[in-house]
Amino acid sequence: MSIVELKEINFIYGKKSPYEIKALDNVNLTIEENCITGIIGHTGSGKSTLVQLLNGLIKADSGVVYIDGKDIWEKPKEISRIRFDVGMVMQYPEYQLFADSVKEDIAFGPKNMGLSDEEIEKRILQSIEFCGLEKDILDKSPFDLSGGQKRRVALAGVMAMNPKILVLDEPAAGLDPKGRREILGGIKEYQRKSSNSVVIVSHSMEDMAMYCDRAIVMSHARVVTHGTCEEVFSQHQLLLDVGLDVPEITGIILELRKKGINIPDNIYTVDGAVTAIKSLYLNGSVGGGV
């Protein structure tokens, strides 16, 4: 089942000015529910525009956005309601924190939804757990936290709204490797436990390969390819053609194939590579048929 459907979306920045830029060019797309979908593409490929369409921060010049089967712009006055269904975590979300305490800040979204106090309390506790935060942080001022902790608080603030779709723009930007692993791992856990859909926008092919179930590749305002990670990452030439790198490990596998090793071409994680090489090594069918 798909949770998001985009039909013939066009979006132009600076319309009728000399600086007109086509950000989305007749985009048709579905995003599957109950999984993590990665959106990959260069800066200016249209991926940020695409993401902002999903919760109605911007409106397409033409085309329809369906969330859960409903046209989100059917009643333009109620567009803010869609933001309870589509949660959005912007780049560097730590800069949106404002409240006196972490607790209040996380409660901001749920309060705007009009939830009861008990429900809000429950959700706060749930969301900080996904984000790897301890309870004692709740009474602290968000401005006294470290950069990484602030990022998690901001993330928890959106998770606490329990949106059907959680959209994250570069959630791990600027973090160290451990921080990246923790935050992306937490998002994965949140997805698995909540069964909500998650969309992650990122530049890192390695991260996408590690944490996403499906991937969408964008280039020059169009969707170039989409599908399961396996399907997408095995189209190496296409990825290279649109100027994206394949994960380093995929590069190694491709080079091995060029050298006549008969290894499958749909490998995009280190563990996958280890398994494949191991089976080749143990079965001895190394240089088959090339």
């Binding site: 921060l57 803010s80 933001r83 949106q96 404002f98 409240a99 901001f108 979204g109 959106v158 709204m161």
Partner: peptide
């Protein structure tokens, strides 16, 4: 945009409510 995404409302309500809505910005 970030606060709007968290359901903040800047365009409805009386003067006091609107002024209050500006705090998160």
């Amino acid at each position: 945009n970030a606060q709007k995404a968290r359901g903040a409302d800047f365009s409805n309500g009386g003067l006091v409510k609107r002024a209050k809505a500006l705090i998160p910005i």
